[in-house]
Design a binder for these strands. Structure first.
Lengths: 163, 163
DNA sequence: TCCGAGGTTGCGAATCATGCGCAAGAAGGA
DNA sequence: TCCTTCTTGCGCATGATTCGCAACCTCGGA
């Protein structure tokens, strides 16, 4: 699933409840599938397929990368999982939150943040008014420079200030 | 050059003037290099390295893909060329305009538009106020749904309107 | 509890976009 | 024209993701 998602989010609060949702959809609960869910529930940040396959540095048994991708794919299809892209580099996967999330990332330091879509509604309105496009930053984030890097940049500018 | 750019744009209005700029920087003007410039000047839209290497479907001699990448890279380094990314898929390269350009793209139909950064200044200000990030849409565009697809979507909604 | 159908796994190989290494070749100043 | 270096072409390496396919496991039914 290199593409976007359109399925409504399905929130689960534990591996077991996620498993129940799988069963309800007649999807089988295999060891590999369960492992992907366990990794996502254990993580406190969006993970790459690679990280999941590696078992979160030994906290979980490692599994086959291709299967991880396939499982992330089907989990995303039913709405349990979402993924987004941080500039270059691998996609990041996380459990779908009750409310969709959007992202901003800093192209200098690589930091990123999840933000509540409501906080971007005025931005969205302005973009639509100006360009006619309805922006969505949940799959591809807003890319820019974070406050810290912005500050560092002006620091630097005044440090050797001899243009 | 999978990364961004920071060099000030260098505008040229013809292959010859671009070549002059190369010479001024002690860069050699090889056939392959010139071909990349010719492709970019001939094209009316941002090109992929692949398209340039293929000689724009026969309009120009085809050349080596690795060299095309290298040349785009050096041309971008001196500011003659810029590239951006349209969601998934290969990067797109074009001649640098006198003023930087930013992009919006539709994730449904793949359409994209170059816009004058000034038109996004209010958006940028709002994003910075809300998130603290200074957005830049010249390397990674704003992704959303274009007016046409938006219209098609509501059409569709009212067509079989039985929720 | 055993069984069969078919969803899943694991492995390897393929893909796409891009980058690297290196010997042979060309560009341009002396 | 000569020589020094920059570039080219070619093939292979890389990172992220996908595909093919036989072996395997899951789960509903007998």
């Amino acid at each position: 699933m290199t593409v976007s998602h359109r399925t409504p989010p399905l929130a689960a609060d534990s591996v077991d409840s996620a498993v129940a949702l799988l069963r309800a959809r007649h999807l089988r609960v295999s060891a590999a599938r369960r492992l992907v869910l366990e990794a996502l529930f254990a993580a406190d940040k969006p993970l790459t397929a690679e990280e999941i396959a590696a078992g979160l540095e030994g906290w979980l048994p490692s599994s086959d990368l291709a299967s991880v991708y396939r499982n992330l794919d089907t989990l995303e299809e039913i709405g349990l999982v979402r993924h987004f892209h941080l500039g270059h580099g691998p996609g990041r996967y996380s459990l779908a939150a009750a409310s969709e999330r959007e992202f901003v990332t800093c192209e200098e330091c690589g930091a990123f943040e999840a933000v509540d879509p409501a906080r971007l509604d005025r931005v969205r309105a302005l973009v639509e008014q100006e360009l006619g496009y309805r922006a969505r930053f949940s799959h591809f984030p807003i890319v820019g420079t974070c406050a810290a890097c912005l500050a560092a940049r002006t620091q630097e500018g005044s440090a050797h200030a001899h243009p």
